[in-house]
Every structure is written in structure tokens, then in C-alpha cells.
Design a protein around this nucleic acid. Sequence first.
DNA 1: CTGAAAGCGCTTACAG
DNA 2: CTGAAAGCGCTTACAG
Lengths: 332, 332
Amino acid sequence: MPTTIFDVAEKAGVSISTVSRVLNGKDRVHPETARRVLDAVAALGFRQNPLARALVRQRSETVGLVIPKVNDPFLFEIVRGVEDGLADTGYSLLIASHPRSSDDGRNLEPLRQHVVDGIIAVAVDLRRAEIDELLQRRLPIVLIQSEPREGVTSFTVDNYGGACRLVEHLLSHHYRRFAYIRGSDFTSDSAERLRALRDTLAGHGLSLEPPYVVSGDYLRGSGYRAMLVLLALSPLPDVVFAANDQMASDAMMALHERGLRVPDDIALAGFDDIPLASYLTPTLTTVHQPTYELGYQAAQTALSMIKEETPSEPMHVVLPTRLVVRDSCGRH
Amino acid sequence: MPTTIFDVAEKAGVSISTVSRVLNGKDRVHPETARRVLDAVAALGFRQNPLARALVRQRSETVGLVIPKVNDPFLFEIVRGVEDGLADTGYSLLIASHPRSSDDGRNLEPLRQHVVDGIIAVAVDLRRAEIDELLQRRLPIVLIQSEPREGVTSFTVDNYGGACRLVEHLLSHHYRRFAYIRGSDFTSDSAERLRALRDTLAGHGLSLEPPYVVSGDYLRGSGYRAMLVLLALSPLPDVVFAANDQMASDAMMALHERGLRVPDDIALAGFDDIPLASYLTPTLTTVHQPTYELGYQAAQTALSMIKEETPSEPMHVVLPTRLVVRDSCGRH
DNA sequence: CTGAAAGCGCTTACAG
DNA sequence: CTGAAAGCGCTTACAG
């Protein structure tokens, strides 16, 4: 049986109200009384029961994180950022992962109920009913890498700008026949990157023929299959831009297996700058996303939304991306 | 204001006791009454408040996961396993990561209090005071990849056996001058792998001289530095076994930079079988750990410990590891 | 500055 | 089968 506030009160010879007061440090308490209470707390090893506290205060000091159930280093960096953003604030992190495929969304159940004070949702498809339901509630919520939505604060990265810089770089290396491997379309990331590719090419009088845009799903393996589709085309592309590094890595594997050299035969570029990118041979040219920052800032923002009484204006923060030139596109 | 059990009771024309009964499905309720209650629940969109429920039932249906705050794919696979092991059980997952360096352990605060029904702790250093404190409590707890401890259920992998098979494999390829890059020693993993290396070498009349055992910390970068230390030795080792794949990958990078070929000049092997291992050039020979399984089984076990009244015998499960032969040790 | 009391939203014996 | 009541462990007006 853990000790309760009653035990402390008895030992200190005061009422539970007083114990509560010194514990919460809100109201004024006589220093001598406070000392007695603190002594009792220490002697008994008392810890407040957060459940009871949350019930009466109507806040649990817990933030929910909704994240796709996918083993992607990109996502993990976000989680780390969120964790650090919450560190030393007294807030706990409740993880609710959601399978990407449509399901009944049962994993979100704890968030649907009244246990979290705010929600941070990563790469969610706002069209899904259970996500939509979450948004309807009056809970503070911040979106990361999701379709910005009227009235909902969101943090995204500059997909368009990053992809433009990447494509300009590729063009400067005289690549002309481009191909694109797309990611899933439950967020607009892949589409934005593709749009940047098209626009930039158009600016140079070039275009992207439909067969040179092939499907992928961001996940391991899909880049390999997509590359095989591209290798069946004639003429071959001379550079392939994959919507993320994972797919670019798998595409590289496919090229190696076919005996094609990167970048001499076909150049390759990705997006994200996951750790893997710098371990490939050749190392992968890509666009860096401030993943950790995304999580960190989202956490800070969620916290301030939770704390402040007057609801702040919803904001849409777009963090900058950065071109990382490595060896897969013929730097030299 | 969310609807409460009182709203439902009123709408259904019954007492809150009855509402509670049909919601929990424990006691017998007249079918007709139950239907009315269910109708009211649906009409009002009522959801039980888990906080209030937890307070009276003295269980929160939440499991705490203690995990090092390190961006390691190895750890993430464990998290995925734990998540899946908890899926559809009604239990939520509360993450409490702990920095590896000694700190005040404030991140563990939610677990110290009374909000979780059980704890799964990954790669924790049991010597640390805050971890030790957790173990003292009468909460169900299961350890993953941590020093097994009297009376505490643990899941580990067969480090020794896996490393033995790896070393035998290397010996069969006629490597003789071994070097070892160690990991951190807050769990016994690295030491076990080293012990296996020493024993297996001894079985072949070989030994490992102290200078050929260098320090690393499992994390990115340390394998690179360790490799540089080894490269200063004379004679050079002809094969380097790193305590994990991350360090092996960084060692490979160091070798490449020095213009040394893997495996022709120096062969390389790791441990873990993280995704990166198969993207390296050459692909990395390693020992596969059943990481996902570790998490999954630990979750299932924690759940059954939480549910059963009579405490079960603590068990120490050792999952098998598997040698994965790739190209970094001269397969051909 | 401090205490008695109400109440947060539930569950669960206890009666009937 | 169902309801009234106590209680889970706290916080917070309300008095004094």
C-alpha cells in the first residue's frame, strides 16, 4: 500500500489541505508548517498519485504522440525531438502508433478518451476518420508533417524549396533525363517534391514524361521494385530522384545488382538525410530535414498551447531544408 | 464538458451502477436494460474516463517502457515489438527514456509514481539508483537486454553462442589476428561477446592480445575512432569484430577512407543485424538478434504478470541469435 | 495561514 | 437484476 496524503498529514500533524498546499506550492503556508510537512513526506517516501491529481485538476500532464507504426529512422528522430522538448517539464509521453493501412484505429483509444492534455500527431492522414475525430475535439493539437489544415497548428518542412535546390544542383551537373520515385500520398510531401521537380525542369525547358514517374511507398523494398520498373524504360533516365532516402538506397541496391554504376551510369538522389545516406557507396546526395527540430518545436508549442488559457492563433511553421551534396550525383 | 456516466444513467433511466455494470460486462444485467444503456452511450458518444476508472480500480491499464535515449535502430525494433505485443489488449504505452549518462533520472518520474501497472525496461544499468528503486517496488517488471537479476524476469539474447558461431566462421576463413571493438559496459552484452571471442580463439590455440581490444560505446562515431586506434598497431589485425553493427559500419568507413579494402585487407564483422548492415559495401557479416521478438515477448509476459494474481516464477528467457554471413568477411 | 467539506468520475461490495 | 452509498487520492473554493 503506497502512502497517501492522509499518512503525511497525520505524521505532520496538519490537515490534508495543508499538505496539498505545500506540495503544490501555490498558497501561502507557514514556513515552519511547511518544513514539518516536507519532513513527513521525506520520512514516508510519499509521492502524489498523479491519477487522483489529474482527476480533480482535469489535466493529466501527459502529451499523446500519434505516429505511424513504421520503423523509419526519420520518425524516430522526431520522437527524440518530442521527448527532449518535453524533458524536465513534468509532462509524460504517451505513444499511440497507428498502422498506416486503414484499420479501426483502436490504438488511438487512449487519446480519444480523456487522458492526454494535448496531442502531437506525426504524418497523419487527416482524411482518416479516427484522426479527424481527434481534431474535432477541443484539445490542443499540433501536426507534424501532415497536410496543414485550417485552424490547426502544424509544423512541416520546406519540401518544395529543398527539392528545387536539389534539382537545380542536378541540372548543373548536366543531368537531363529525370525519373521520380514517389512516396505514399497520405501526406503531401511526395507530391510537393514532385511538383518542385516538374517546375524546376520546366524552368529549364525540360519536362518529365509519365513513364518516368513510378510509385513507391517510402518503405523498405519499394525503391528496389520501382528502380526495376525504371530500368525497363528506354531510354534510361540518367538521374533518379526518390521521394525519400530509404527508397533511394533500395534503388541503389537494384542498380548495383544490375551492374550499373552510380553515378556514372545513373545518378541517384533522395530526401530526408537519414543516417544510412552517408554509409552508402557512393554516399547519397539528399535534402536534409530538420527532423529533431520538428519534434522539439512541436513539443514546445503543444506545451505552451496546453498551458495558456487564451487560445493562441493557430500557426503553420515551415522549417527550412538543406541540400546535402554527396557522391551519388557526380559531385566531382 | 465531456459526458459522464451520470448523463448516460439519466438518459437511460437507470442508476450509474447499472451503467457501470453494462460497460464492464461483469455482472448480470437484464438484456433490455443493457440495450437502453448502450443506446444512451451511443447517443451521447460517452467514453469512460480512464483516470477515474484507474483511481478506483487501482490499475491504469498502462505499461511503462524504460529505454535509453539513443537513436538506435536496434532499440526501435524493440519498441515496435512491445507496441505490437500490447496492441488490442486495451493497454497503453507510456514511454520514459533515460539518458545513458548519469543524471537525476527525472524522466522516470511517471513510472516512480503510481501510473503504470507494469514496467518493461530495456538495456538498463541496474546499478543506477533510479532503476534500482524501480525494481524494489512490487510492480511487475520485465527486463530486456539487461543484466539478469535474482527474482526479476528478463529477456536477453544468446550473445555468447552467437559470437561463438561468428568467430568459428571467421576462423574457417583463415583469419587469425583478431581485434575487438567493445561497447559500453552497462549491460553485459559486449563482455559476453568478447568472452565468446576469447574462448573460441583459445579453443584453436589462439589468443587476443590486450592492444587488440579497443573501446567503443556502441554509438555512431565510436567505431571510427576505435578503428583508427587499431590501424596504428603493428602487425595489423586481419579481422575486426565490433560489438555492434553501428561501430562496424563506422570502422568500415575508416578503412575505406584509408584506402584499405574490406575484406581483402581487413575483414569486418558486427552484431545486431540492423538494416544498415545490408546496405554497406561490402555488406556486413553479423549476428542477427531477434529484436522485435524480444519486445513482443516481453510485452506479453508483462501483461500476463499484470493480470495474474498469483505471482509467477521469475524467468530468464534467452532468445537464440543467428549468424548472418554476408560479404565483409570474404564469403567467397 | 489553516481546516472541513465538496467534488473529480468512476467501481464495487452491500442490500434488496 | 438493480440502486444507494462508500470510497479511490487528491485539489480547491469557502470559512475562519
